[in-house]
């Protein structure tokens, strides 16, 4: 095996960084932002199900040991207890992996938290295809699952800036929130675009005449890279970042998709079923808009295990794959 091949394989590790080589990163943006917030707001407590280290909550735990609750590897308990804490006037940030919150703890989030509109913030690592561990850890269905829950606000941030700004925004928002999390050394990209996170609002990061890419999460990073690749071929692509999946910023999406003559592509780090793509499609159709529409998403399958770059290529969510498919569709 070549050295290069061996190096590539190490990225199948659970906590593989999403940063490409030389990319600027920030360490633990969620944990740091939560600490800043907690300084000012004594209601904030951190709770986890044996994944503090892997959700960057360990930063908070070290800074505020008496406001940190290690609930053990018991996600149902975590969510029920977070509901109880919220009932007593606190504002819990509860962390685990996205698969465990969405699949295992769904009923507890639904009935103990959402049905009561309690201010619990559920922050979950390993969204979509961000680990090579296979289906047990790949939350390719979390957005579909949570979109069906009445009253749940859903955030899919793109980078360290998005996360840092989303934390105080979701804390100020009444009612429950589910946020996908990138942890560790998280790429920093959006500061180059003069971007600010606004809850419930999509932001046009770059304009373009031929293609409109609507994306969330890490796919916004990929879309921006793909737009650069397309520009080299004189294809002009706009990127609309929509970090709030629910409630969707229908106003901005309709305004952008309503501009005639552009191919509309939704790019999401999620199964093609029930995520941003279908949410956007329904929004367009309900408003009587039917532009040319394509979806870049993970297939409706249990995905392979392996190295992340390999898998991102295989399932078509790398920047190169995004650019290639858009060229084919034009």
């Amino acid at each position: 095996m070549s050295v290069a091949a061996r190096k590539r394989l190490t990225t199948s590790a659970m906590i593989a960084s999403l940063a490409s080589e030389g990319q600027r990163t920030e360490a633990a943006p969620f944990g740091e932002a939560l600490c800043r917030l907690a300084e000012a707001d004594p209601r904030i407590v951190g709770m986890t199900a044996d994944l503090a280290k892997y959700t960057d909550l360990h930063v908070f735990a070290a800074r505020f040991p008496d406001r940190f609750y290690q609930m053990g590897m018991a996600e149902q308990l975590l969510m029920g207890a977070a509901a109880g804490m919220a009932r007593e006037g606190f504002m819990p940030f509860a962390t685990t992996y996205a698969v465990f919150a969405s699949r295992r703890a769904y009923d507890f989030i639904c009935m103990a938290i959402a049905e009561e509109s309690l201010p619990v913030r559920i922050v979950c690592a390993l969204p979509g295809l961000t680990t090579g561990y296979g289906p047990s850890h790949q939350a390719t269905d979390d957005l579909a699952i949570f979109r069906g829950m009445p009253g749940m606000t859903i955030i899919d941030p793109c980078d360290a800036l998005d996360i840092a700004e989303a934390v105080p925004a979701i804390a100020a928002h009444p009612g429950p929130v589910y946020m996908r999390l990138l942890r560790g050394n998280v790429p920093l990209v959006l500061d180059e675009y003069g971007y600010r996170f606004r809850l419930g609002r999509a932001a046009l990061l770059r304009d373009g005449a031929e293609v409109l890419i609507i994306s969330s999460g890490i796919m916004t990073m990929r879309a921006l890279e793909a737009a650069k690749l397309l520009a080299e071929d004189r294809v002009s692509a706009a990127v609309l970042h929509s970090p709030t999946i629910k409630p969707l910023d229908a106003e901005t999406i309709l305004a952008e998709a309503g501009r005639p003559g552009r191919l509309v592509v939704v790019a999401e780090n999620h199964s093609e079923v029930g995520g941003l793509g279908e949410a956007v499609a329904a929004t367009l159709l309900r408003a009587g808009l039917a532009p040319r529409f394509r979806q870049i998403a993970l297939p409706d399958r249990f995905l392979d295990a392996g190295a992340l770059p390999t898998l991102h290529d295989r399932y078509g969510i790398s920047a190169e794959a995004v650019a290639r498919r858009i060229r084919e569709w034009l």
């Binding site: 149902q76 029920g80 977070a82 109880g84 804490m85 009932r87 507890f108 049905e115």
Partner: peptide
């Protein structure tokens, strides 16, 4: 609380007890 989805009450009680 809204009980009825059985098995949830005591988990909420934990959070209230801690709170």
């Amino acid at each position: 609380i809204t009980g009825g989805s059985l098995g949830q009450g005591l988990t909420v009680a934990i959070g209230m007890g801690l709170g």
